[in-house]
Design a protein around this nucleic acid. Structure first.
Length: 408
DNA sequence: TTAGGGTTAG
């Protein structure tokens, strides 16, 4: 800064930092804080909160925590919103105990709980299987003078459904209907999913129809939950009808829709239709993920089409889709089905083509055999030279193949 | 002339 020029103050820096955060340059924003310290300009609460907000948006809870500790060390008055971000961040990552501890801190330091914090905590308790804890927080929230809304009720119902407490979930649904709490599609999808998973798909269908009547359009979550429920009850024909209707109603199919149907079609041995589903998905430009390919590859492997599964996987790479655990899933599925010979053949093929490090495939084979209850072969593999001692400079022929494990 | 949060999936 030039002598006699106007020196930037903390507000100038905060504005600049906010700008960097806005364009996603959080690191640069953090560097600005160090720059401030160099020119003896103290960052203030707004500085910290601006960066913390950016870290929160990026899902970096550790960064939020260290900023919080830095604020505490400096003796700053920690604002309520800081606790909110930390608690919500911890809840998102499933750290229910840490989140609750911070909630206690928040209250101890004179801040009041709010809707977001209570809802996040209720959701986190529910997801960790502690619905009673969630309900206790729900009561405390009301005692605290904070009115639960459709999001809070959504979290409560989702938690209850996930722990099989359907009747109580339905009770809250009735309560909302009777007390003018207009529930949203998220709420409905949790309920439809819960009913479907509990084998009460008729009721799930009723709820699905009811929501449209009430002016709440079902979204892809609702469709997928009902399609899944219909499949689980063996009503695949109805699931396929709904699959068609979904598109007609203007609701996009998702990778979840296809995964549900591909799994189910393979399960009932309608293998070619399952493969057609996959092709349809690719044609529609929907990117498969690990779980979707797992459904396809396991189905193919168990119907004797291991090479075909490998071919599909190879076709994905040029599309920019890299599925880390694809081979592990296939080897695991074959071992689980007792088809160790095919698993070994697959393992050799993967290594022969240089697709994976031999040592990794060896570990996968040992784990898969053990998991499938075939401890004898797992131990035999462990004490053998199979799959190790191979490098690219040597002839592939010298390597001991996985197949020798089951040859004699 | 600066910081703003919560719920749904195979």
């Amino acid at each position: 800064m030039k002598e006699g020029g106007i020196k930037p103050d903390v507000v100038t820096y905060n504005t600049l930092i906010k700008g960097y955060c806005k364009i996603g340059k959080t690191r640069k924003a953090t560097e600005m804080v160090r720059e401030m310290e160099v020119i003896n300009l103290e960052p203030d609460v707004v500085t910290y909160m601006t960066i913390m907000q950016a870290c929160y948006s990026e899902g970096d809870v550790d960064c939020c925590l260290s900023l919080y500790h830095e604020m505490e060390d400096k003796g700053f008055q920690v604002p309520s919103h800081c606790y909110t971000l930390l608690i919500c961040g911890l809840c998102k990552t499933g750290k229910v105990l840490e989140a609750y501890a911070l909630f206690e801190n928040m209250l101890r330091n004179g801040c009041k709980g709010n809707k977001a914090v209570y809802t996040a905590l209720i959701d986190c308790y529910g997801k960790s299987g502690n619905s009673d804890g969630a309900l206790r927080l729900f009561e405390r929230m009301k005692m605290d003078g904070i009115e639960p809304d459709e999001v809070t009720y959504g979290a409560i119902v989702n938690g209850l459904c996930k722990s099989g407490r359907l009747e109580e979930a339905l009770g809250y649904f009735r309560f909302c209907n009777e007390n003018a709490v207009v529930v949203n599609a998220v709420f409905y999808s949790s309920l439809i999913d819960g009913l479907g998973k509990a084998g009460r798909v008729d009721e799930a269908e009723k709820v699905f129809d009811e929501m449209a009547e009430k002016g709440c359009l079902p979204d892809s979550y609702c469709y997928n939950a009902l399609i899944d429920g219909l499949c689980k009850c063996g009503r695949i024909a109805d699931a396929l009808v709904l699959f068609k209707r979904m598109e007609c109603d203007g609701c996009e199919h998702t990778v979840y829709t296809f995964t549900i149907l591909i799994s189910e079609l393979f399960r009932v041995h309608r293998n070619e239709e399952a493969v057609k589903m996959w092709d349809l998905m690719i044609d529609k430009g929907i990117t498969p993920n690990v779980a979707c390919f797992r459904a396809l590859s396991i189905g193919m492997c168990l119907s004797g089409k291991v090479a075909r599964a490998c071919k599909v996987l190879d076709e994905l790479a040029p599309m920019g889709v890299v599925l880390e655990t694809a081979y592990e899933d296939m080897i695991g599925a074959l071992c689980k089905a007792g088809r160790v010979k095919e698993a070994c053949k697959l393992a050799d093929g993967i290594v022969d083509r240089g697709r994976e490090i031999p040592g990794k495939i060896r570990t996968v084979m040992i784990h898969s055999l053990r998991k499938a209850g075939n401890a004898d072969l797992a131990i035999k593999l462990m004490h053998s030279k199979i799959g190790i001692g191979y490098d690219r400079m040597r002839s592939v022929k010298k390597r001991v193949k996985f197949q020798t494990l089951v040859d004699n």
